[in-house]
Structure formats: structure tokens, C-alpha cells
Design a protein around this nucleic acid. Sequence first.
DNA 1: ATAGCTGCAAAACTTTTGCCGTTGA
DNA 2: TCAACGGCAAAAGTTTTGCAGCTAT
Lengths: 155, 155
Amino acid sequence: MTQLSTYETMIMKSGSKLTKQRKQILKVIIDHPHEHFSAEALYDLVKHIDDSIGIATVYRTLELFEKLGIVRNVKIKNDGVNYYDVVDLDEENHFHHHLICTNCRRIIEIADELESYETFIEQKYGFQVKDHDLTLYGICSDCQSLENSEKPLQK
Amino acid sequence: MTQLSTYETMIMKSGSKLTKQRKQILKVIIDHPHEHFSAEALYDLVKHIDDSIGIATVYRTLELFEKLGIVRNVKIKNDGVNYYDVVDLDEENHFHHHLICTNCRRIIEIADELESYETFIEQKYGFQVKDHDLTLYGICSDCQSLENSEKPLQK
DNA sequence: ATAGCTGCAAAACTTTTGCCGTTGA
DNA sequence: TCAACGGCAAAAGTTTTGCAGCTAT
């Protein structure tokens, strides 16, 4: 079973339809496994395949794919755009680390080297670390006791 | 020397002026050391002190404060707004970790517990970790060899 | 057949910018 | 004094939404 068909199965099993546009977007994403796409960039690429697609469809598709765990959202400081990259199904760890060059904006994916840190990263990737963010997402103790009664983060 | 006057000195030494509006914003931020403010939220709070302030001033001030290292930017998944929190001058480490509740959007600051991780975090903070992002900012090897000739990340 | 999806255009939101009067050093 | 700054309003940029027609199941 290919990666593509696995994702297509995920879409159908979720009760969502496997439309032409979703297939096209999926293909572009999978064909560029280490790219980090903005909705706009993805829109431009898919437009080459099918000129009729709308930008709203790209946004709605990314929202769906994120919910299904096909892509994940990456935010960058001093950049008002949302980026997305594919979630590799074979990933041992579900964590995703990025090196972001503050000069050229390049996004480099790295393995989950926890003990390592800066010195290690600098040696291994030749990347001069200036700053980092670690953000943990989850449910806080108050919300756990409220049994998830409050509104979710998703708007 | 108080924290406030230290920051005020930082502003003046940078060559920027210590205006009424900057003092007001600084005060609000320092009075809420563990809050994470959006520009809008900060604007509303300062408006209580001085009704004449404009939202553009808040944005320009946050930009300045971030450049000076007084505040730092925090981005949250599925949230289109930028948040800022104060950089504690006494911080041993310059890293800033956050727990973000995907249910109530609460942002909890945590110490820099690197070895720890999920199990540790869950025990210490009663926070059920679902996901995390680690992002390192710096200069990639290509840009280092180009001697920083390319355009910076800041727009 | 029909619930869900798409494209289009408009709207919503956040953030930035130009202009001109004001102010801090 | 005068470069820097602030307020206002308009603009810019990204993302969301309403609607009417289309499509996958």
C-alpha cells in the first residue's frame, strides 16, 4: 500500500469525500515531502495541474488534512503565514523539529534529538542556533477536571 | 534598580525615545508578568489608562520591544494572533517554554526542563501533553558561508 | 438522491503603512 | 530645535464564510 493510498483511505474512512481537488493537493504534498507549504504556495502548484481550483478549497483541505493528521501546522516568528508539512506515517516519534534560518527563511527538518541541543545541532547541521521555541500542546489540569466541557482551541 | 527602570534604560540607550505611550505599555506588561498579550488585548488595557492611544502604536511598540529583547513573540497553532510576554532579565536560560491548553487556550509558562519531557511535564504540571513543537531559530550553513548577505527574516 | 464539496466573491481579521501634527531629548 | 513618534484612517495580506451550483458515494 502506497503512502498516497493510505492517506486516501484515511480521508474516506473519516466520512469525507475523496474529491478531485483533495487528490490533487495530496499528490503535490506527497511529491514534496520536505517542503513546507503555505496555502498560497500550494494553490499555485495545484493550479498548474488544474487551473480551476480556488484558494478557499486549499484552505479547507489543509484544515481537513490537519484534523486527519495528514499534515501539520508550522508557525514561524515574524511571519504571518501558516505553513504545513506532511506527517510521515512511519515516523517513530510524533514530534517534529525544525531549524528556521532567520536570514533566508529556509525550513530544515531534523530528527528528534532531545539530549543533543544547540551544540549538537550546530555540529550536526552547521546551523548556528540563536533562539528556540518549545511549545507543548495538550489539556491543562483544570480542563481535565472539567471533563473537556469548555470550547476547544479550534475556532 | 527596578525592572521597570532597567527596561526604560534599555529603550533610551537604544536611541529610542521614552514616550508616554511606551511607558504605559511597559507598565501594563510588567504588572502582568505571566500574561501573554495580543496587541488587541494590550490595547484594551492601555486604553483604560489613556483613552487616546492608537492600536498602531501598540503594534509599533511591541515590534520595538521585541527587537530590544523586552518581550518575545509566542505563536499558537490554529490561532491567527501574535502573543507577547515579558522577557525576565534574571532568566538563567534564554529559552522559553509554554504549555498551551488546546481546550481553554490557557498559556502556562514552564521552566526549561530539557531531559524531563512529557512524562515529567505531565506529573509536574498535571498537563496532558498531546503534541509539541520545538523550533530552533538561527543561521543555516549556506547563509553563514554567504556572510549574511541575504535578506533577513524580518519583512 | 443527496449530503458534502467547490469556486467565486465578499467579508472578516490582523497587521502595516502614509501622512501630518506632536513631543521628548 | 527637529528627528522620532503617535493617532488616524486607509491599505495590505491572510484566512474565513455565504451561496448557488456540482459531485462523489
